[in-house]
């Protein structure tokens, strides 16, 4: 575990906790589509970032935390790809099947869990990324805009804006 990775996790954790609670409160129907996989440990791995994200979408005990890769829990399901691809998949701005066909998206572990998470997120109207950025006002929106500028849109996004 590098010091940089550990420091990144510590710095970002308060934001993640706030974000996931807000999303859960605003989109409770997410959990119904997850069904039995509310208790599954997902590891979401943005390959350019110094850490991975551990998600357990249990509405009664939500977990969403940054973890150094070498200290991540054994996941029930792993989702790996470039940061911006994962962000746009979360917002349904990218098509998960197309990203999978092109090999830009890697999944392993419990495939049903991944399919349920994808379908649950896909049924959310609007942009979770924009909602998240808006929680932090103008600075949040500026950071999101900068992320979108700095990380290239995937080639699979034939219809991406």
């Amino acid at each position: 575990m590098t010091a940089f990775s550990r420091l990144s996790c510590v710095m970002i954790q308060p934001l993640l906790t706030r974000v996931v609670r807000r999303i859960a409160a605003r989109h409770p129907s997410l959990f119904a589509r997850l069904g039995p996989h509310q208790a599954t440990d997902f590891l979401i791995d943005p390959i350019e970032l110094p850490f991975a994200l551990h998600l357990r979408p249990d509405p009664d005990a939500l977990v969403f935390r940054a973890v150094p890769r070498d200290a991540a829990p054994e996941p029930g399901a792993l989702i790996r790809g470039k940061f911006m691809l994962l962000l746009e998949l979360m917002d349904a701005e990218e098509d998960g099947d197309a990203a999978f066909f092109s090999r830009d998206l890697e999944i392993s572990g419990d495939t049903e869990a991944v399919v349920r998470l994808r379908n649950a997120l896909d049924d959310v109207d609007g942009s979770i990324a924009d909602e998240t950025a808006a929680m932090f006002g103008a600075p949040g929106r500026a950071i999101l805009a900068r992320l979108r500028r700095n990380y290239p849109t995937q080639e699979t996004g034939a219809f991406a804006p």
């Binding site: 998949l89 349904a92 701005e93 990218e94 098509d95 998960g96 099947d97 197309a98 994808r118 896909d122 996004g157 034939a158 219809f159 991406a160």
Partner: peptide
């Protein structure tokens, strides 16, 4: 029907 909103929109 198994595809995403992104696919449907496009």
């Amino acid at each position: 029907r198994q595809r995403s909103k992104s696919y449907v929109r496009g």
